[in-house]
Structure formats: structure tokens, C-alpha cells
Amino acid sequence: MAGVTTRPAIDLEVLRERALRIRREIIESTTAAGSGHPTTSLSGVEIAVALYFGGILRYDAKRPRWPDRDRFILSEGHGAPLLYAVLAEAGYFPTAELNTLRKFGSPLEGHPNMRKVPGVEASTGSLGEGLSIGIGHALAGRLDGKDYHVFVMTGDGEIEEGQVWEAAMAAVQFNLSNLTLIVNNNDFQQTASIEKVMNTKPIAAKFESFGWIAVDIDGHDLTAVHEALAVPRRSSEGRPQCVVAHTVKGKGVSFIEGPLGHHGKALTADEAKRALAELSR
């Protein structure tokens, strides 16, 4: 298939540098906004970087609606600061715009709006809806004889929504080998850990029992992420793939990592300064 043979070998150093820059942009934009979800965004950085800058996703920032493009749908829309930083780095709009996040008149609303931001494939923010939308894109691709691939990223709390499992059944029923679901498995949702609120684990086993191909990976290991996301295009036996990416909420900023209840809070100016110092290495 097109895209596979042309994919460049990944340069880990370049990708790591890119990931670091995106982490800084997430902190800067949310602190400038005074609100937002930095910890969610930080946990998905390697996934997005591997997709957009590791040669996996086929896209052309000059032609956001190019019919043959691969799709990346951020179902957990509160991770918008990550998506915006990645799209800006990819050339969809100037990185200077990131500082307008959540400001009146800016296209960069609190959650992604497909009508306002080039590169945004779906308007999300109400959890649980992105996988169904991804199925629509995958079906349209098949109808139109196109070989694009659809990637959807969801939270591990988000999959508590019943619609996700309606979609999980449909993706298998419709033999959607052109669809990959990435679960950002950072172990926390809004109010507490997944285990405490409504345990969605074991995630890979659930998707496997629904008929998906599922793998568990370290979501911060760029090589592992790249490998897991590159595979689906080559072989998938007519089945959709689920990549359960084990991540750390707040990854990269030591004092907000993990179980510290930092969901949905921007850092103060002082905290941001400390965070950016950690992220400058």
C-alpha cells in the first residue's frame, strides 16, 4: 500500500526533541489560557509525535481536506492543547497562535472544532463519540476505494461510555482493517483512578473479546509506539486494531505526574516556569 514503502526510518533524536518542544507548548498555552488539560495532553505526546513526525500519518498541511489523507481523530477532545501543538508543528497554522488557546475569537477553542481549525477531523469534547465518527471515515474510505487509514485516540476513562462499545462491535462487524483505536491508558480519569471510579481494565482483553487485534505497549517509548502504529497498514486480517498505550498522566513534569489529581488544571506561572525548566533538557 502507498505510504508504507515511503515511510522514512525514524530518527529518534529528532522525534525526542520534537516531543520536548510540544510538551513545552502544552504547558505554555494552557498556562497562558489559565485553564485546560495539560496532564492529559502530556500523556499523549509520544503517540502524536510518532504519528505526525514518525512518517506514519499521511497528510499535507497545505491541503487539510486532501481526500487521500490519513485521519487522526482525537476523541478525548480535552487533549486539545496536544492536538493544537502537533498541528502547529506540522504546519497547519503558525505556532504563535497556540498562545490564543481558549481566548475569545480564537479558533483554538477549549475543545477541537473541525469547522475552525485546519487539520481537526472531528469536533469532540463530549466523551465517547470519536470511534463512531472514525468508523464513518473508514467506511467512506472503503466505499471510495481509498487506502487511507483512520486513527482514533480515546482516554481510558472515556471508554466507560456505552457508545464506545457499540462502535467496538460495529468496527469488527464491518471488517474495518483500516481503523486503529489508540487508548491513552494513563490510569486516571477526572476524579480519581480508573480502578476507583469505574474500572475499564483489562482493556486489551476486552477489545480482543470483541474481535479486535489488541496490543499493549509503553506509550512513551517512541520506538514501541512507532512500531505498533505502523503495523496495522501492513497486516490486520480484516480486523480493526486497538493499541493500548500505557502512559503517565502529566508525563515529563515531575510534580504533576501520576496520581496527584492535576486533571483539568493549568499550571500557575511559577509552576509553569519550573515545568519549562524540566522540559528544557
Partner: peptide, 28 residues
């Protein structure tokens, strides 16, 4: 038959799938 999708008894998912198809230029 190729342009018809029975999504089973799952209306939320139906609407989401229609949304995706419409995003790709279909009239769903």
C-alpha cells in the same frame, strides 16, 4: 447493498457513523 449499513440496535453509534461519512462527502 454496498451503500447501506445496518448498525444494529445502537442509535448513538449510528449517528456517529453518519457524522464520519458526512465528513467524507457522503450524504448520510
Amino acid at each position: 447493498p454496498d451503500r447501506f449499513f445496518n448498525c444494529g440496535i445502537a442509535e448513538s453509534n449510528m449517528i456517529g457513523i453518519a457524522s464520519g461519512l458526512a465528513s467524507c462527502g457522503k450524504v448520510a
